[in-house]
Amino acid sequence: MDTSAGIQEPFDLIRLSLSERVFVKLRGDRELTGILHAYDGHMNLILSEVEETIMLVDGADSGPSGQGIVNVTKRKMEMLFVRGDGVILVSPPSRT
């Protein structure tokens, strides 16, 4: 059996991360990490052990560096359904 047959479309890459911790970037300056348990063709996701990071940029244009102060809010959720229309990307977490 050729395992390469497994990867034919982008969704197959997401499938590799099933049951693994994933990093999800969402609209509205939100990011999630969590263990992926389900996804579908709309990129609807079900994650567990989720940590959400919300970034609120204050005064984006002010300051000499062109960067505003970023307020980061974090919260944790046990089990979360994420609606696919807000998902920008799904990736394995960066290995540190």
Binding site: L26, S48, E78, L80, F81, G86
Partner: peptide, 9 residues
Amino acid sequence: VVRYVQLPA
């Protein structure tokens, strides 16, 4: 209009 649904684990 839903963003998340928190489910009972």
